[in-house]
C-alpha cells in the first residue's frame, strides 16, 4: 500500500506526462495548422473568386465577346457605305466573298457630325456561338478612342437605311483619325424661333365661330398665309396659359390670332413674345385638318424639309441633351 508521498509522486509524474503530451499535441496541431492554413486560405480565395464570377468561363466569354464587339466597331465614312450599297457590282463581290457570316449579324448605321465631317458608324454584334470567322485583325480599329455617339435611335435619309446583310462584309475597315474632341461644352440654347420640336406639355385650344382649334405641331407655318386679325387669344374661349398662368401652354392670352387664306380649318397665333421657346407663330387647326388634305407633299418619302438642318442631331434636338 502506498503512502501519501508515493501517491503524490505518482500523481505529479502523471500530471507532468499529461502536460508533456498536451504540449506535444499542441505543437503537432500548430505545425499541421501552419501547413494547412495557406492551402485552406488559397482554396477559400479561389472559391471566392470562382463564386464571385471572376474565373467563370461565362465571364471570360463575356469579356472576350465584348472585346470582339469592340474590335468590330468599325467607323467608316458614310460615302463608302453609300457606295457599297448602291453599287450592285460590289454587292455581287460581297456575296462571293469567302468570309462567312451568319444572318443574325446586326448592322446599325448611325451618323454623327464631328468637326464638320459626316461619318457613319457601322457597329457589328456577332453571336459568338454562330461562329463568325472574320479575322479580328481585318476589322479591328487600332485607335479605340470612343467617339461621341448619339445613343438615341438615329433617323437618316432613306437611301442610307436601305442596307443589306452582306454590306458589312464588303466594307473595308477604315482607320479613322481619332475624333476631334470638342473642348467647348455644348451651349444650352433655347429652341430657335419656329422650331417644331419643342415639347408642349399642355394642349391649348381656341373656340372661334363654333369651331374648336387645337395647337398643331405637325403643321408647318410656312404652308399657310396669314390673313386677317380677329383678336387676342384672351378674347376667345379655350384653354391657354401664359407665363403667369402656366408656362407649358403654347399660346398665351396676349398673343394675336389671325385667320389664314383659303381655309377656316387653320388659325395662326402670333406670339406676343417673339423669343418664346414655342416659336413666333403657333398653328391652330380644327378637327377637319389633316396632313393629307393640307400638306400632302410631306407624305412623300423623298421629301426633304428645307428647314431641316443637315445635322440630324441638331434636327432632332438631341445635341442639346448630350
Amino acid at each position: 500500500m502506498k503512502n501519501y508521498e508515493e501517491m503524490a509522486q505518482n500523481v505529479l509524474r502523471r500530471i507532468d506526462e499529461y502536460e508533456n503530451e498536451k504540449r506535444i499535441r499542441r505543437a503537432k496541431i500548430t505545425k499541421a495548422a501552419a501547413s494547412v492554413t495557406p492551402v485552406c486560405a488559397a482554396a477559400v480565395i479561389g472559391i471566392g473568386l470562382w463564386k464571385g464570377g471572376v474565373l467563370t468561363p461565362e465571364q471570360d466569354q463575356l469579356i472576350s465577346s465584348t472585346g470582339d464587339n469592340a474590335a468590330y466597331d468599325v467607323i467608316v465614312p458614310e460615302e463608302t457605305v453609300l457606295q457599297d450599297i448602291t453599287d450592285p457590282f460590289r454587292e455581287e463581290k460581297a456575296y462571293d466573298a469567302p468570309v462567312t457570316t451568319t444572318d443574325t449579324t446586326e448592322i446599325s448605321v448611325s451618323a454623327a457630325t464631328q468637326s464638320g465631317e459626316e461619318i457613319t458608324e457601322v457597329s457589328r454584334n456577332d453571336d459568338p456561338a454562330s461562329g463568325g470567322d472574320i479575322p479580328e485583325a481585318d476589322l479591328s480599329v487600332p485607335d479605340k478612342t470612343p467617339a461621341p455617339r448619339n445613343e438615341q435611335p438615329v433617323m437618316t435619309k432613306p437611301a442610307v437605311q436601305q442596307t443589306s446583310p452582306a454590306v458589312q462584309n464588303t466594307v473595308p475597315p477604315v482607320q479613322t483619325a481619332p475624333p476631334v474632341q470638342n473642348t467647348e461644352p455644348p451651349v444650352q440654347t433655347a429652341p430657335a424661333a419656329g422650331s417644331r420640336y419643342m415639347w408642349c406639355i399642355a394642349v391649348s385650344s381656341l373656340e372661334w365661330n363654333g369651331t374648336v382649334y387645337h395647337d398643331n405641331d405637325m403643321a408647318k407655318v410656312s404652308a399657310y398665309t396669314q390673313d386677317r386679325y380677329i383678336g387676342r387669344v384672351g378674347d376667345f374661349e379655350g384653354v391657354y396659359g401664359g407665363a403667369d398662368v402656366h408656362p407649358s401652354y403654347r399660346i398665351a392670352p396676349e398673343d394675336s390670332v389671325y385667320t389664314v387664306k383659303g381655309t377656316d380649318d387653320v388659325l395662326l397665333v402670333v406670339k406676343a413674345d417673339s423669343d418664346s421657346p414655342y416659336g413666333a407663330v403657333i398653328v391652330m387647326s380644327s378637327s377637319d385638318w389633316s396632313l393629307e388634305k393640307y400638306e400632302p407633299w410631306r407624305l412623300d418619302p423623298y421629301y426633304i424639309d428645307p428647314d431641316t438642318p443637315d445635322d440630324p442631331a441638331v434636327y432632332f434636338g438631341i445635341a442639346e441633351y448630350n
Binding site: M1, K2, M7, A8, N10, V11, L12, R14, I15, Y18, E19
Partner: peptide
C-alpha cells in the same frame, strides 16, 4: 477492493491536477 480504490483515488488526484 482497496487496491482498486487506491488506484482510483490516485486517478482522482491526477484528474484534479490535470
Amino acid at each position: 477492493s482497496i487496491q482498486t480504490a487506491e488506484e482510483l483515488a490516485e486517478d482522482t488526484f491526477v484528474l484534479i491536477g490535470t
